[in-house]
Amino acid sequence: MGKVIGRLPVVYDPAARRVQVESSAEFVETQLLQRLDDLAHGQPLRLTLTVEPERKGRSTQQNRLMWALLTIMADAYNAGRTGGVTPEECYLDMLEKYGAKVDFLEVPAGALEILRRCYRLVHVVEILNNDRCTVKCTQGSSSFTTAEMKNLIDGIFDRLAEMGVNDPMVTAYWQEWKEP
């Protein structure tokens, strides 16, 4: 796949069999045409047009709620003691349960920094002989759609209920989450 020059939001109208640039995308269209002019240097420029459905990524609000709930979950696992289970460990567990692709790799310990540039989360599972380790890697929820993120947050609420967490903040978050 070649380098993406830009993304232009459009709407397909099946009745008219036409694709129209969204009115809010006029600025993006102008920028894209300017970039194409710069690349073309006054000559025809061959391009490949890729059409894909719009994908709405998770919202900032969803992300904040997820981390607040994961912090409450870790605190519940630790029963008020310091140390123990971290919100990040809860995050990895919930990601694995709710659809994030997880890779387990055996690598030299020196390769951890390279992995951290390729994966969103890299967690050392086991230290092995000869300066090697087993790691658990995932892209994280940043690649989730709003629907996938909703499923993850619903799952976190379910896990907190299963754990018997009776925290007024969880109740408040739940009420706010379920509002239409």
Rank of each mutant, 00 (worst) to 15 (best):
D93Q: 10
G83I: 09
H123V: 11
G80W: 01
D103A: 13
V85S: 04
D103W: 12
L95I: 08
E106I: 14
L112Q: 14
R120L: 05
N130T: 04
G83R: 09
Y98R: 14
R64A: 13
T60L: 13
K97W: 06
C90K: 03
W67A: 03
D131K: 14
N129C: 00
S59G: 11
L65A: 05
L115E: 04
A79M: 06
A74T: 02
L112C: 08
T134F: 07
H123F: 08
Q62H: 05
R117K: 15
E96F: 02
G83M: 10
L92N: 02
C118W: 00
E113P: 00
M94R: 04
G83F: 11
V135G: 04
L69K: 04
L121P: 00
R120E: 09
E96M: 09
K97N: 07
L112R: 15
G80N: 05
A68P: 00
G83N: 09
R132A: 08
H123N: 14
V125H: 12
D131A: 15
A79E: 11
G57N: 08
L105K: 12
L65E: 05
V107C: 07
L115H: 05
V122T: 04
Y119I: 09
W67C: 06
R64F: 11
R117T: 11
D103V: 08
E106C: 03
G80F: 01
A111C: 00
Y91W: 12
A68F: 06
T71G: 09
L112K: 14
T86W: 00
L105D: 02
Y119Q: 06
V125A: 14
R64S: 12
C133D: 01
L128G: 10
V122R: 03
G57I: 06
E89M: 15
R58L: 15
G84Q: 04
P108I: 10
R116D: 06
T71Q: 10
M94W: 02
R120V: 01
W67M: 11
L128T: 09
G57V: 08
